[in-house]
Design a protein around this nucleic acid. Sequence first.
DNA 1: GTCTATACACAGATAGAC
DNA 2: GTCTATCTGTGTATAGAC
Lengths: 227, 227
Amino acid sequence: MNYNQFKKQYADSGGDISRAVFLKNQGVMRIKKEKTAVTNLNKIFAAVFSITYNKGYQAMSMRDLSLKTGMSLGALYAYFPGKDELLAIMQTQARAMVKGTLEEFSNAYKDPLEKLRAVIKAHIFLSELFRPWFYFTFMEARNLTTQGFDAVKSIEEHTQKILSDILVQGEKIGVFKPGNHDLTACMIKAMQQEWYLKRWKYAKQKISVDQFTGHVLEMVEGFCLAP
Amino acid sequence: MNYNQFKKQYADSGGDISRAVFLKNQGVMRIKKEKTAVTNLNKIFAAVFSITYNKGYQAMSMRDLSLKTGMSLGALYAYFPGKDELLAIMQTQARAMVKGTLEEFSNAYKDPLEKLRAVIKAHIFLSELFRPWFYFTFMEARNLTTQGFDAVKSIEEHTQKILSDILVQGEKIGVFKPGNHDLTACMIKAMQQEWYLKRWKYAKQKISVDQFTGHVLEMVEGFCLAP
DNA sequence: GTCTATACACAGATAGAC
DNA sequence: GTCTATCTGTGTATAGAC
């Protein structure tokens, strides 16, 4: 599976975050028509990414957001109760989306080696497809409340465990070498994160997602596979 | 070399950032006595790290900083012209320190494998010794001006090149396998960064710097060494 | 060198017309 | 649903006393 295939497959399963946000937060937002809400949420999220990419969420003013979306301050406050809540909503929804997709891919394979490849690829491809979301959730995680940050830790540990479980399982049947599988899982996650944290670098060096993913897999397999 | 040995060795060569900041910025700050300046700069930097760790630089107010340092607003402005300039000063000094140390370690070895080990270790150990500085410069890099961010890119490429040059050199004499050495260098950097970006994770899992560094070296050597 | 007091810009948020 | 106008708190920065 390469990135284009992943993209096609995932587009079908419906990656519409704005609609999910609307459905989950109907109680709190004053907009009732789904189509209006989804259209404007899309505009709002895009504007948030564009503004915060260079200066962070705290430095974005509601007036910045109003200017970029073309919506008035009053209109914006019909979509979320406050600036902090907007951040929380975005972080929560992004986490749910990542968790769901990774589990889906993890359950689709039985053989440890195939499973490992699929999960690693899926994470990098997903981070490419939703790059602004990944970058944003990473960089703004520390602005969250204690509970919000606990949720961040929790998903980090969860995805790490998905990887280390695969390695343990593979060791049992002799496919992978023994070793500290938790630390190896951490290293894999570090390499995956590199892709969306250093966007400028790989754009400049003209390295594609597929090239990058291939190299990560080479390194992981070179280290993990039993001789 | 383990972390404790590194710590001892580096403490001798003088890692006093505050003094360096004082010497470099005498023209711009109103304090003339070195001892006073260094003492208070230490307080200021420590306060910045403590405040920004959880909410970022933009969200730190000068009143926060005044409260944490015990210095008045007026006094603070005697040490730097403005909030933005304080950020720039800290980023610049941190970069100079890292660059200097890594080159020092890179030049101390000839054999590619030894050199690779030394450089990888030195970077992780340095990031442990100056963890607040590393975390801060990474997370706040995007608040910089265009020139400031160019400097960030430049040092990223510089340290990447140090690594890839070693790999190229080692391939020539048959120690390392052929491959995309630039991408491998990127992966190494990603793993190194992991150490200071996810402090909470390794503290919780009780993994020491030496353990972490050992695992990075294992992975790199497992992948790079020629059979 | 360090303090207090203050200027003045801009932040988040809301009310009420349309 | 969306707008304009406005309230009120807080931000960075400076002046001038000690």
